[in-house]
Amino acid sequence: MSWKSLQATLADNGYIASDELAMAVHLSVSLQRPLLLEGAAGVGKTEVAKKLAALNGTKLIRLQCYEGLDASTTIYEWNYQKQLLSVQAGKGDADTERLEQRIFSDQYLLKRPLLEAITQDKPPVLLIDEIDRADEEFEAYLLEILSDFQVSIPEIGTITATSYPLVVLTSNGSRDLSDALRRRCLYTYVEYPDAKTELAILQRHLPDIDASLAEQIVSFVQLLRKEELEKKPGVAEMLDWTAAIAGLGIAKLSDNPVELQATLVCLLKTQADHYNIPREITERLVGQAVP
């Protein structure tokens, strides 16, 4: 599949990808390299992985990162309760060697996302979400898996991948990632979509919306992103807002300023942002957005 057809297929599945992103996904699939996506929250980084899984008809294995994530929650853990029972049950068995072999075998192993991802029959999509939230120790675990696709378990040995997963890492850039990790990945910075792309996204998700209203909404959101905001509204917020406006039966943004101001709860997510965008500014933006 060429990158253009990949872009088209993604679009058919409801994801409008930029040229850079389409090429990155294409190369990541064909070179079997992990893909690192950076960008502000709400630009659709996670969605890429979901769509890819849907597109290939494979499993999406998701690992949400947080501080203190360690090997036992990401790679594997022994099923201790089962081991304990098994040891108790096998009390008569004098052969400790055999007992040990049994309880440290595959059936007593609990696979966590990373191990699960490399032991599938069909290559899955492995989404490592918000990698910048995890700490540096976790990045170190990840390096072994991302470069060799293998996991070493002392009791069993090395487990090599049965299939190479398509790895997508996302980061909001809240912390700098190590260079070692960056170098193993293909990189793309996902920007907020431009007006044309955003309109296409809106129409793809909410096809029933009136064309001129959709245009007003998109240009309003684009203008709003240029304001000084703590948290700029992402694509998901834009879609929520559109749904709210459609639900309230607003036909034109300039019709009812009070109601419109109330709907901004969908777009502005901090108290400071609400304070920064009073009704006057909303009206000014609407004035620019509505032809």
């Binding site: 060429s2 990158w3 040229d19 850079e20 090429m23 990155a24 294409h26 190369l27 064909s30 070179l31 690192l36 950076e38 850039g173 260079d179 960056r182 170098r183 990945c185 293909l186 990189y187 793309t188 910075y189």
Partner: peptide, 26 residues
């Protein structure tokens, strides 16, 4: 390696491929 997977006569594609592989930072 990536040149096997793109059309290297197309300038735009080559640029994108280089960009995706060689950068790692905003």
């Amino acid at each position: 390696q990536s040149f096997q997977h793109i059309d290297i006569t197309d300038q735009h594609q080559v640029r994108l491929a280089f960009k995706v592989i060689c950068t790692g930072h905003h």
